[in-house]
Design a binder for these strands. Structure first.
Lengths: 150, 150
DNA sequence: ATGACTGCAAACTCTTTGCACAACA
DNA sequence: TGTTGTGCAAAGAGTTTGCAGTCAT
C-alpha cells in the first residue's frame, strides 16, 4: 500500500485548488466536497451516490451540479466515465489500471486488477487514422452472489 | 474472407427459423426482416437504424417490437449489446472478435479488428468468484475526420 | 463589481411497460 | 383455437438545459 495512503483533506483540497486555478476556474465548496468524497472512496460511483454522500456534508446540493462537477473533473483528469451495462454511467476515481466486471443478473459492478496488453489494439486503431486515448474493458458475466444463489 | 460470404436470404431465414423453433418461439415477418437487415449490414447498429431499415420492407413496424426482437436475438446469440459512449446502445451482429473505437468529438463508432489477450482478466475475475462470459473493449479517442479538421 | 457557479424546474432522449388486436402454430 | 407477438400510447429512468439568484475572485 505504499504510495496509496489516503491523503488528508488538506492535501486533497490543495491539489484540486491547484488544478482549478491552472484553468482559471473557481473553487467552490461543492467542488471541494465532491472531490473529497471521490478520493475517500477511490472506487466507481454513480451520480446518485455522489449526491447522497455530498448532501450529508452540504445539504441542498443538486444533481445538475453533481453532473456538472463530474464533467469538469473528467476534463481535469480526476475521474473517468465508465459506461456500465444497461445505460448506467459510473464515475471512477481510481487512477491505477483496472477493468470492470458487470453481473448480468443483478447489475453489480466490481473492479478487476489485471493488466491487458492494449498496444496491438491501439496500433490497429492508429492504422485506420484513429488517435486512441484510453480503453475501457467491461466483462459481462455472473457475480459470486448470483452464481451461488442460482 | 472465406467463410464470411454474404449468405442469401433463404439460408439466413432458415437459420433463424431453426433457432426459434428450438426454443418454441414463433416465426414472424418482423423477426425475419430484422434478422436479414442485421446480417446484410454485419455491423453495429442502433435500434433507430434497425427501425428505419425495417420500415422500408415492413411499414408500420414499431420501436418496441425492434427492442423486443433485439433482446430476443441477444438471447439467441445473434447480436451482442455494446454500450458505446454517451449512453448509446449498439447492437452488433458481427461474430468475429473485434472491438470498438469511439470518437470523443463526434461520437462515431468504428470497428477495430485486433485480438486482445483476455485470459489474464478472466482468470482474475474467476479468482474473485465472478464467472466471466464476454468482454467488450471500448477505446476512446479522436477519429480520423475529427483529427484532421482540428 | 462581474462573471462563473449553483439550485430549481422542466425538457429531453432512449428504453420499457400495459393493454387490446392480430397472427402464428 | 389458444397463446405469443405486435402496435399504440404512455410511463420511466437518467441526464441535460434554461434561467434567476448567489458567491468566488
Amino acid at each position: 500500500m505504499i504510495g496509496r495512503v489516503t491523503a488528508d483533506n488538506e492535501v486533497i483540497d490543495a491539489d484540486l485548488v491547484e488544478r482549478l486555478r491552472a484553468r482559471g476556474q473557481r473553487v467552490t465548496s461543492q467542488r471541494l466536497v465532491i472531490n473529497r468524497m471521490l478520493r475517500s472512496r477511490d472506487q466507481h460511483v454513480t451520480a446518485e451516490e455522489v449526491l447522497g454522500a455530498v448532501t450529508q456534508t452540504l445539504p441542498g446540493t443538486s444533481l445538475p451540479t453533481v453532473y456538472a462537477t463530474l464533467e469538469l473533473f473528467e476534463q481535469l483528469g480526476i475521474v473517468r466515465r465508465v459506461n456500465a451495462g444497461g445505460g448506467a454511467v459510473l464515475f471512477d476515481s481510481r487512477t491505477v489500471e483496472h477493468h470492470h466486471l458487470i453481473c448480468r443478473t443483478c447489475g453489480a459492478v466490481q473492479d478487476v486488477d489485471a493488466n491487458v496488453e492494449l498496444e496491438a489494439v491501439f496500433a490497429a486503431a492508429r492504422r485506420s487514422g484513429f488517435a486512441p486515448d484510453r480503453a475501457a474493458l467491461v466483462v459481462d458475466g455472473v457475480c459470486a452472489d448470483c452464481g451461488s444463489s442460482a
